[in-house]
Amino acid sequence: MSRRRKIYEGKAKILYEGPEPGTLIQYFKDDATAFNAEKRAVLDGKGVLNNRLSEYFMTRLAGIGIPTHFIKRLNMREQLVKQVEIIPLEVVVRNVAAGSIAKRFGITEGEALPRTLVEFYYKKDELGDPLVTEEHIAAFGWANPQEVEDMVGTALRVNDFLAGLFAGVGIRLVDFKIEFGRLYEGEMVRTVLADEISPDSCRLWDMETNEKLDKDRFRRDLGNVTEAYAEVATRLGIIKTSTDIAEVIDIRGERNGDK
């Protein structure tokens, strides 16, 4: 890792230059943050699990024709991805009231929304990633109308697919956040799914008990965060036994992603 040039470091991932032009290596850290990084911790194995989970989701979504930046998983903590220009917006899809929307509108957490909602947030940590409208997006030139249409359409397709996938293993997809990038291919520019999809970016509740299987376990001091992520991976068949879980998390020897 020291031989590679670091391109960008975020709260949960690091991007390094890739082996070929137009590629990057995306490294998943064990760092956990919440409330605009006011709360921080290191959770052994979280990055390993998120790497595996995001690989799984990106691969399945590509299989139904959704373009993504993902190329392949390289090892326990790293992926090879296409280099894209990140659109400075977080796209949040909500099926059930939870988190900020429950507070904003005084809705009981867990109440199904009248319909699926798609929201945009401006990616700016120092401003708290404020909620924005399509009018703001157009006025400030963060994305053009076609890109907005592509993002909304793709977000709804992702929601339909993931909601069904999770329901099949007894998990309710409450909401999730995704990001998009511009992929330049000669004179063509495509809007593709980027970043990651994992329990860091989704709210996932057990359908029978409403037990939280996502980052809210960290936000709300519920404990067993990595174990909850492993439960999601186990239900989806990504890891199958307690031995597999130990190998995937590999707390003792695989902190640097070199295997």
Rank of each mutant, 00 (worst) to 15 (best):
E38Y: 12
K240V: 04
A34N: 05
E247L: 07
L131D: 02
V152K: 14
Q83P: 04
D206Y: 13
Y122H: 11
E208I: 12
L236G: 11
V248W: 01
T154C: 08
Q83I: 00
V81N: 02
T234W: 01
N36Q: 13
I245G: 01
L24V: 06
I245T: 08
D214L: 05
T23S: 03
G153L: 08
G18Q: 03
E231L: 07
G65T: 11
E90A: 11
N95C: 09
N256E: 10
R60W: 06
G257W: 11
K123D: 15
R252I: 08
A230F: 00
V248M: 07
Y16K: 03
S54K: 00
D150T: 10
E185R: 10
A230G: 00
P130W: 05
V91P: 03
T154K: 01
L74W: 04
T243G: 11
K259R: 15
F105N: 07
N95H: 15
L131P: 06
W205R: 03
K29I: 09
F57N: 01
G186R: 07
E211I: 07
I245W: 11
K11C: 04
N224L: 12
A37W: 07
I171P: 00
S242P: 03
K6T: 13
L113F: 07
K13M: 02
T68I: 09
G186H: 06
D200M: 00
D216C: 10
A102K: 06
G164M: 09
A32G: 11
G10F: 08
V132E: 08
H136R: 13
Q83A: 09
I64D: 12
A41R: 10
Y56I: 03
E119A: 12
E208W: 15
I66L: 10
A246C: 00
K39I: 14
S242M: 11
L43I: 14
E149L: 15
T133F: 06
G186L: 01
Y16V: 02
A32S: 13
G257P: 04
P114M: 09
V93A: 06
E247D: 07
L156E: 08
G181F: 11
M188W: 05
K177F: 04
E9P: 02
T241N: 10
N50F: 13
Y16S: 09
A97E: 04
A97P: 05
K13G: 02
C202E: 06
K46Y: 14
R217M: 13
R4A: 14
N95I: 05
V132T: 09
S54A: 09
V96Q: 11
I107E: 03
Q83D: 15
M76P: 05
G181D: 08
E20A: 13
N51I: 00
K240T: 09
D125K: 05
M1N: 12
G63P: 06
E231F: 04
P199D: 07
K240M: 14
L61Y: 09
K29H: 15
L165Y: 01
M1K: 09
E85Q: 15
A233S: 05
L162E: 06
E9Y: 13
G186M: 08
T241P: 10
N75K: 03
K72Q: 14
R77I: 01
S201K: 08
D175M: 06
K212Q: 15
F35K: 04
E135N: 09
K123H: 07
W205P: 04
V42T: 12
E227P: 12
V189I: 01
L113E: 07
N159Q: 07
G106A: 12
N95P: 08
I245P: 02
I171T: 00
